[in-house]
Structures are given as C-alpha cells and as structure tokens.
Design a binder for these strands. Structure first.
Lengths: 235, 235
DNA sequence: TTTCTAATTGTTTATCATACAATATGATTA
DNA sequence: TAATCATATTGTATGATAAACAATTAGAAA
C-alpha cells in the first residue's frame, strides 16, 4: 500500500441503510477490544479518518467501496458531529490508536447516509468480515462506539425528511424488481405510519418512473403481485 | 485574554441572513490584505477555527455573539466543506497565518446559517468594524475569500428548503411588529415567486401564531396596514 | 372443489391551492 | 374640502389533491 498521510482530526462516518422487506436496517461492524485479558465487544459505524488530500465525499465513497464493493451508491452528507467529549471514551481512544497507529486527540466527524439494496453486498475485505445488518428499532439493545447511536438517529431523521421531498430515493432500498406492496411497506416503515392500500396504489400509478414489467411474483403462497421497476430517466 | 488552544484543522463559518424589506442580505466582513505594498480587498464570511475544547455549535455562537452582541440567535448547521483545495489559495493562507499565528494546512469548515433582524446589530468589536450587508443576488459582483460563495449558495438553498417545512422561521428575519405585506414580500423573496395577495392573506389568517396587535403602521404615505406579531408559543 | 392469503380496484367527501377584481382607507395635493 | 394617489383589505368559484371506506379476483395449498 502506498504511503498516504492521514488527517487524524476529521473523520467520515457512513450510516448505511438497507431494507429487508419488513424493517429498516443499518450496517454495523463488530468491534473487538481486548481489555486486561477480557474481550469487550460492541459495534460501530463504518468510517475512517480522512486522508490529508482527500475530499469528504471521496472519503465516504472510499469507505463504502471497501465495505461493499459497490460503485454508484446513493450518498448524502447530513450532519457533522464535533462534541469534544465524543472521542473521550478510553475504550474508543485505545481502539483508534491501535488501528491507526496515530496519537488521537479530538475528532470531528462528518456523517453521510448511504442507501443500498440489502442483498447487494459484494466483495468484503477481511477487515470488514464482521458486518451485521442491525434493526434501527433495536438500537437500544446493543452497545455502540463513540456517539454512533446519535449519529444513526440523526441520519434516520434526515432520510425521513429527505424522502418526503424526493420519494424516488426509496427505490435505492428496494430490489430491482419490486411489488407495490413492497414499496408501500418500505414507505410506511420510513414514515412511521400505515397507508391505505388503495390510495397508495393510486399514488404509485401516477408516478411515471414506476413502470410495470408485465411479470408477476413467483413462489408466493397466494395471488402473485405484478412486478415493477424504477426508471430514473422518468423522474 | 486567557490561553485558549486552537484546533487549526476545523473551522466554523456563519452565513448570517437579514432582510431589508426588499432583498435578502448576507452579512460579510471586509478583508484587507497587503500584498507587495499593494492592498487587496475582498469579503469573507464571519468564521473562526474552533477551540480544541469547544463544540461546533458553541463556536458558531461565539462568532455570532462577538459579531452582533446578540443572544438567542436562530442557528442551524447545514453542511460541511472539505475540498482539500479550499484552503490552497496563497492569499487565504497568508491571511490565515497572519491572523492566527498558526501554521495552516488543510481546514474542513462546518457551515451554519443564522437568521437575524437586520436592524438588531448591537455591539461591534473593533475587529468587526467592517461589516456589510450584501445582497445575495449580487454575489457575482464581488470577490469572496476561500469557497465562501459556494458556502453562501448552499446556505441559501438550505434556508429555502427549510422554510418550506418550518414557515415560522421567517419571523426571525422580520421586525418584531410587521405587516402581512412585509411577510409576503419576504416569503416571495425566499421562494422566488409572486404570491397572490388575497390567497396569502387567507393563509396567514389561518396561522395561529401570527397575532394582530390592533395597531397600524405610521408614517406611510398611503393607507396604513395592520401590524402583527409572531407568538412562538402558538406554533 | 374448497379454502386461504394477499392483490387489485372506484367512489365519495373533505381539504387545500389557485385564479381572479372591486372597495376601503389614510395621506397628499390641488 | 374635494380629488387623487398608493397600498390595504376582502370573497367566491374551480380544480387538484388527500383521506376514508370494502368487495372482488387470482394463485397456491389443502
């Protein structure tokens, strides 16, 4: 690996969302810390301190590429976090200094939201072997590094607001072929409400960028639904 | 002044908007640079590198307090800017190193939008003597430091989006007592459109937080309009 | 053939956004 | 004091959108 100079004062963290058909999930990495011969486990967001000559968005893409192997990921900066106390937990400091070989002081981190199709993870480097899709409604039930719970909550709020203005953003989370029910359940999950089935159908039929494929679902134990695709050119 | 340790890797810039009754203005500081016995003048956003132990939002409040003397300013983080080239203009580097006495490399800056009543500027420290309210539509006609034009444009886009969702934010820009016409002109300025006078009046009458004062304008050469105030408790 | 599960479809009503112009008021002026 | 000027104030009709509400259909399984 070529010599790259890190800037240990600024980092980028990615809140990667996926949808499993039922719930919204966030991609987390397992972290293992050895503390006085005891192992401590928790989870963290994929992130990295930036290179000295790297743009913020490039850093986010770098992280996502290494993590998922994907190109053309939906990515959007949503907020920066700079509480001086956010990098003061000794466990986090030790972990940082071990993984970066740098003396770490304060780090301001820039939060990005990414949206991917949950089954699209490709090559995973070894360092990203311990990846889990974690239910965003169960964040209270696990331990996260740094202020990553707060970052996820803000990322979630951001994507809720943003998908109101840009509903086409939801298709990043659905399979390439999807049913209107899948779209509705995703929509309802994100907006935390229950839509009327008929009204939702009508609304979708008026979206020129949702086009019927003339195919039906297969292997479902009930009436098969029509399949649709998203056509970005028609947005 | 007590010893405060700066963190020269991260800064905060404030895009302070005001409204003069006609146009949206942004608050800029005049910058004077001596270059080989020639004076070079341009403008910059109020901003500062952060203190090592200071939160981002606290830094923004610190800047605004020193600049305006005001407390309780509407403030909202909107985006961070980290292009490595943004701090590579020699003029900017010289200016930074002269004003901070620090060796400056790359700086990531966090953008905040602030909204104030244009006539409310109070104490101005000497260092902020050269303050101008600059028309946001005339930004092409002046020279700005760093990437401050871009930061202002993004801040403007942010406030446009945000005031759609939170119309009560507009009252930060109006005098304490205002007419519905003033509110409409501000609204139209921000949304870049022309509202129908009657429809706008109806809309305002349905806002419980806009309350009539039972007073009228004075010293206007035409029929005096009713005055209203904004009641935050009724939002 | 029956049953089960989810998919598909229309009508009514209320609400909200838009289009559109005449009259009223206060100050100024002739 | 009457006319004029500039802006404030007000209502109705129409179209578009959102919300409420249930019966029928299709495919798989029993």
């Amino acid at each position: 690996m070529s010599e790259v100079k890190f800037n240990p004062h600024v980092s980028v963290d990615c809140v990667v969302f996926g949808f499993d058909g039922k719930n919204l999930k966030v991609l987390l990495l397992e972290r293992h810390i050895k503390e006085q011969n005891e192992f401590y486990n928790d989870k963290k967001l994929p992130g990295s301190i930036i290179f000295e000559t790297e743009d913020l968005e490039s850093a986010a893409y770098r992280i996502l590429n290494e993590l998922t192997g994907l190109k053309n990921i939906y990515l959007s900066q949503f907020q920066s976090f700079g509480d001086p106390k956010r990098t003061k937990n000794p466990r986090d400091i030790v972990w940082l200094e071990n993984t970066t070989n740098l003396k770490i002081g304060r780090i301001v981190t820039v939060g990005y939201v990414a949206l991917i199709k949950i089954n699209s993870l490709l090559q995973l480097k070894n360092e990203y072997a311990d990846v889990v899709w974690f239910d965003v409604n169960k964040l209270g039930k696990t331990r996260l590094a740094f202020d990553h719970v707060q970052i996820i909550q803000k990322g979630l709020a951001y994507i809720r607001r943003k998908s109101d203005l840009e509903p086409e953003l939801l298709f990043e989370l659905l399979p390439r072929k999807f049913t209107i029910s899948q779209l509705r359940i995703l929509h309802d999950t994100i907006h935390q409400k229950q839509s009327d089935v008929r009204n939702f159908q009508k609304k979708v039929k008026k979206m020129p960028y949702v086009v019927a494929l003339g195919e039906k679902e297969k292997n479902v134990p009930h009436r098969a639904a029509n399949l649709y695709k998203f056509d970005r050119k028609k947005v």
